[in-house]
């Protein structure tokens, strides 16, 4: 019997080694990115194109922008693709990242119950829309997770002159975009979403876009390599290859080509 156990053990350990090495057979990089890009399905569409041309596998870890930057700071990712310009610039300035590059943009949309009790649909600009929700005291679900969307939302409240701290109608989900939308749908609340996640989100119930289109709702994504000087194990060559590709004409074409229904979700930024 001891013999059988031994045989089983060896084969089990062998199989996990095989499993791990299979995953690492080709070259691969870890890309820390946002839930919005992952959940919109963009990566599932464009990464196979890159992998095919370069032979480099991209492993996406989807987090909030804040978390993704933390992961980069700790050296646990090779490349970051996030959307919070102020935090990105700080990240590079502090020496954690190398040269931020524009990749693409989409826009934020204000979603809420179709009945639109706060009358956001008639707002003249973004600040006005946020102001109407605060004035009416309609339920609002915030990401509350230091993500790029969360940072943008807080900027909009600021521009509307609203202090959301301690407001009964203001709920912090502390969750990714999807769970936040699930909550908003369940409560019939308003929330701010990126267009990509919204477009691929299925459990909408009564939610609809109540306000969109203001240039202020512009949501740019940037890409950067984690600083190899700080973290020597960072896969510099492969990471740079990915950054070069996603900002190249080929990469831009791939981004433009991703559609849900007939709707294009991300727009490449040409340099």
């Amino acid at each position: 019997m001891a013999n059988g156990v031994l045989k089983f053990l060896t084969s089990a350990v062998f199989s996990v080694t095989a499993m791990v090495s299979a995953a690492q057979a080709g070259e691969s990089i870890v890309l820390a990115s946002t839930t919005s890009t992952e959940q919109s399905g963009l990566f599932n569409f464009i990464l196979p194109i890159f992998e095919k041309s370069s032979g480099i596998a991209v492993k996406v870890v989807a987090l909030g922008t804040g978390q993704a930057l933390d992961v980069g700071k700790r050296g646990d990712a090779d490349v970051l693709l996030v959307h919070d310009r102020a935090a990105e610039d700080k990240f590079v300035a502090e020496g954690y990242g190398v040269e931020r590059k524009d990749v693409m943009y989409n826009d934020f949309v204000l979603v809420g119950p179709a009945a639109d009790a706060a009358g956001v649909k008639g707002a003249k600009d973004t600040a006005d829309a946020f102001g109407r929700i605060a004035k009416k005291g309609s339920n609002w679900v915030s990401r509350g997770d230091r993500s790029g969307t969360h940072a943008a939302e807080l900027r909009f409240w600021g521009s509307a002159g609203v202090d959301v701290k301690g407001q009964g109608w203001y709920k912090e989900a502390g969750a990714g975009m999807g769970p936040t939308l699930n909550m908003a749908a369940g409560m019939g609340a308003y929330t701010l979403a990126d267009r990509g996640t919204w477009a691929s989100f299925k459990n909408r119930q009564d939610l609809t876009i109540v306000y969109a289109g203001d240039p202020k709702l512009y949501n740019p994504y940037g890409v950067m390599l984690v600083n190899p000087a700080r973290h020597p194990h960072v896969k510099k060559a492969a990471g740079e290859k990915f950054i070069a590709w996603i900002t190249s004409p080929d990469g831009r074409r791939a981004i433009s080509a991703y559609k849900i229904g007939n709707e294009q979700l991300f727009y490449p930024l040409s340099r």
Partner: peptide, 18 residues
């Protein structure tokens, strides 16, 4: 995806996608 996605994390992901 294709590397460390297991049943529970896949479920969590699909839930957050609604």
């Amino acid at each position: 995806d294709r590397s460390t996605r297991v049943m529970t994390t896949a479920i969590a992901l699909e839930t957050s996608k609604g």
